[in-house]
């Protein structure tokens, strides 16, 4: 906004059925603070028409047959922080508040993720509609932790014309927010996926540690520090620190395709 002026920035608030009300409140606080034009569009009807919720719920029912729309759900990562292969667990909560969880097999996992990825991709479609309409560029806001570790949906939130803070660790993004005087509700917000109906921190969904520690682990890995040095700083065992390093590398490998352009079978050198 400082780079372009408030009159040349357009904001979009795109809640859906599983969005936290606080996300919309923080979005409104931000556009009010910036003084930019914006639009609010509930994307739940679009997602429902595409079958996003139905595909997701069908996959959940293959694991918990009694699950219905009155229940809440999320998936949570496990394994990588303990030196094992990463896998996902499905967590559900019935209307009485009873929680159950079970390890996800490959097919329901893929279907749940594919269905929920509709959310990020529909949002991006709407962003590009407005960018085309206004002849604007789409700005993406991954931080370094998310960009490096592949914490984004290809052709969803991972798509943008420019990503101006991808080089900054998440800790630094929070520091910039405080420096710019953004509303405290934003500067103090706990990062979540805001994708599943049960509350879900980013670390629970994807990262091995809370972001303050993950930032340090990624910095240490990038600067070739040893697991012993990371362990001493984070007050964890050397073995655990090595698992975190291994997990960073595993996620880089597993998500490298998200960064790649489409493969051509023969070069087209003219473009």
């Amino acid at each position: 906004m400082q780079a372009l002026g408030a009159g040349k920035v357009f904001g979009l608030l795109l809640p859906e059925r599983d969005s936290s009300p606080e996300s919309l409140e923080r979005g409104r606080a931000l556009v009010d603070y910036l003084g930019i034009d914006h639009d609010v569009q509930d994307i739940a009807p679009t997602l429902a028409a595409l079958g996003c919720y139905r595909w997701r719920d069908d996959a959940i029912r293959s694991v918990f047959p009694h699950y219905d729309e009155t229940w809440r759900s999320k998936i949570a990562i496990a394994g990588g922080d303990k030196g094992r292969f990463n896998h996902f667990r499905l967590v559900v909560e019935d209307p009485q508040g009873r929680v159950a969880e079970q390890r996800l097999g490959l097919q329901p996992y893929l279907q749940i993720v594919a269905a929920t990825n509709y959310k990020q991709r529909i949002r991006k479609t709407i962003e590009y509609f407005h960018a085309d309409r206004l002849n604007y560029a789409v700005v993406g806001t991954p931080n370094r932790l998310e960009y490096d570790q592949g914490f984004f949906v290809k052709n969803g939130d991972g798509s943008a014309d420019v990503k101006p803070i991808a080089h900054l660790y998440k800790t630094q993004v929070y520091a910039l927010g405080r420096h710019l005087g953004l509303p405290s509700s934003i500067c103090q917000a706990v990062p979540t996926t805001d994708t599943y109906s049960l509350p879900q921190g980013q670390d629970e969904f994807y990262f091995a540690l809370p972001y303050q520690q993950m930032d340090l682990a990624l910095w240490a890995y990038n600067h070739h520090l040893t697991a012993a040095e990371l362990a001493e700083t984070l007050d964890i065992s050397v073995e655990q620190a090595q698992w975190v390093f291994d997990d960073i590398e595993a996620k880089r490998r597993a998500t490298s395709y998200l960064h790649q352009k489409a493969v051509l079978l023969s070069s087209v050198s003219e473009v």
């Binding site: 800790t171 520091a175 420096h179 910095w219």
Partner: peptide, 11 residues
Amino acid sequence: LSAAVLEMDEA
């Protein structure tokens, strides 16, 4: 290694 490695000149 400490939180200081992530400090920066915000301005």
